[in-house]
């Protein structure tokens, strides 16, 4: 379960503070997958970073039950001068996981061959994404935050991701941001729309999509 209570976040700009999230209160129960829709700049990624704990809100509280992932689909947490293996070791250590198991599972999923033992800066963006994704799957999270992960990688990788997600949904929840309606329909049961005026949750993803598309027309 994740609960946001009166979350407000703004960034300071030369033209005064830009309020990205304004007093958002929402309860996301366990065992559900929630798709979040919103136009560019609506604050979806900011919301994800706050749910994941990477950034602090200006005010408001967050209650997290269970282990929440970092926003998946993001490979920036890697240090370019370290090898893929060393990067994975670091993450496994800070999450208190069995380092050897995490390394094995990540290597198997990522399929980057001997590049796994080379500095991450030599990776293509697809390889980086595969390692990052494999790593996040090797750590047992209760809630997965997914930020446009399917935008990177080829068809085979996307299918592999979808398959793992489906398998995970039996025991983990997922909060997903995507601009791809088919992806959201396939992966999510519930949906939410984030706009300047607030955050509204709907019981079905279809309902959220129609509200979102209605909003685009206006």
């Amino acid at each position: 379960m994740i609960e946001l209570r009166h979350i407000t976040k703004s960034y300071s700009t030369p033209f005064g503070p830009n309020v990205v999230l304004d007093d958002i209160t929402v309860l996301i129960p366990t065992g559900q997958s929630l798709g979040i829709l919103g136009q560019n700049g609506a604050g979806k990624s900011t919301l994800m970073r706050i749910i994941g704990g990477a950034e602090m809100p200006d005010s408001g509280t967050i209650v997290r039950e269970g282990k929440v992932s970092w926003p998946i689909g993001f490979a920036g947490g890697f240090n370019g001068s370290l090898t893929g293996e060393d990067n994975c070791k670091f993450v496994a250590r800070i999450y208190g996981q069995d380092v050897d198991r995490v390394i094995d599972e990540t290597r198997e999923f990522a399929e980057v061959g001997k590049y796994f033992y080379m500095p991450v800066r030599t990776y293509s963006s697809g390889m980086k994404a595969r390692v990052a994704f494999g790593l996040s799957m090797a750590i047992d999270f209760d809630v997965y935050l997914v930020d446009e992960v399917t935008a990177v990688g080829d068809k085979r990788f996307r299918e592999k991701c979808a398959a793992v997600f489906n398998e995970r949904q039996a025991y983990s929840s997922m909060i997903m941001i995507s601009h791809s309606m088919p992806t959201l329909r396939a992966q999510c049961t519930r949906g939410a729309v984030l706009t300047k005026s607030g955050f509204s949750v709907f019981d079905t993803i279809d309902e959220a999509i129609s509200v979102y598309e209605e909003g685009l027309k206006r």
Binding site: R49, G52, A54, W70, F74, G76, G77, N79, V91, I94
Partner: peptide, 9 residues
């Protein structure tokens, strides 16, 4: 900066 994405860091 990238490390701070991991909330425990």
């Amino acid at each position: 900066k990238a490390l701070l994405y991991y909330p425990q860091v």
